[in-house]
Design a protein around this nucleic acid. Structure first.
Lengths: 161, 161
DNA sequence: GTTTTATGTCAGTCATGTTGACATTTTGCC
DNA sequence: GGCAAAATGTCAACATGACTGACATAAAAC
């Protein structure tokens, strides 16, 4: 009585079991995917929040604090602590904007760049192995489906200029 | 000098840009995917940890605490707080094992079952839409690739019986 | 010249994870 | 029968990363 459920009327033409499999795959994949850089981060007294900042600043050198907040979707108070530690310890550099001097343009120092590579390398390797094992056609389906799961793939990444 | 990097020697036959796209897609998809049930959870004074417990107990009625700990990969102390709240508020039931009376077999009450459906429905709908939009072939690639990203797809789910 | 924007900061709180130590009940083995 | 191991619970202390609310400053924009 507790495990046989009628399919919900809005589930489209997929079985609920297939959809639940996706829920669980996302949970397990993300858990494993994020677990690797943690040892490296812990060695520096950092956490995942630091990784995210380092990653996106490395990806978008010269980005503003506002842009970073838009990507991470956290409050500026949450970001402030993490960012201050990274700046104080010489991983991230801040520079006033040229046109708009209120902005603090963010970039990685060479120390930050080296750390970013060490952190991201583990994840790149994991993805590379998975992509190679799955094959190009599966990767295309992976990309297409994952983007469809995301709220709006264009926002929060490059859309906010 | 900061954004042109040579491809790492171990990245296989995919460009680093493609691999970084995957890193970012996983981040954004998972963030959006987990964001929806939060309002519902907050209304009960719960968080994501409660959702995970409710989800997996609903998925595996009669599971033991050890099995749940193995899936979630958190400490028993972390689980204890969440589980106690769910039991106290009548979402989860505990029953001693028949053969092994040390065990507390976990299951959802009818109240818990109703809440599980309300919570999971949002995520099922999201996946169903994405699957429908992407098509069966893309879904197959999605599954294959996501499983390859996961450490060992057989462990931590059904393999520990 | 006033308002808005970009950013920083202080203070308090909450959710969720951790480690370490210890208690209880039951099982399983000699 | 008795003792070790297992399944679970619990207390205490702590770290991380999120939140809200309030206020401060400098620069840009109208």
């Amino acid at each position: 009585m507790t495990d046989i459920k009628p399919p919900p009327p809005h589930a489209g033409h997929f079985h609920e079991g297939q959809l639940r499999e996706a829920i669980e795959m996302l949970f397990f994949a993300y858990r494993d995917f994020t677990s690797e850089p943690d040892a490296l981060l812990a060695g520096q007294g950092f956490g995942r929040a630091h990784h995210r900042v380092i990653y996106f600043v490395g990806r978008h050198p010269g980005m503003t604090v506002s842009e970073l907040l838009g990507i991470l979707r956290i409050t500026k108070q949450s970001l402030a602590r993490v960012l201050r530690e990274l700046v104080d310890q010489g991983f991230v550099a801040q520079a006033p904007g040229e046109r708009d001097k209120r902005q603090r343009r963010l970039s990685l120092t060479s120390k930050g760049l080296a750390f970013e590579r060490a952190l991201t390398e583990r994840q790149l390797t994991r993805i590379a192995k998975a992509y190679a094992a799955a094959g190009p056609q599966a990767v295309e389906g992976f990309r297409k489906t994952l983007l469809a799961i995301t709220d709006d793939p264009s926002l929060g990444r490059k859309g906010m200029s």
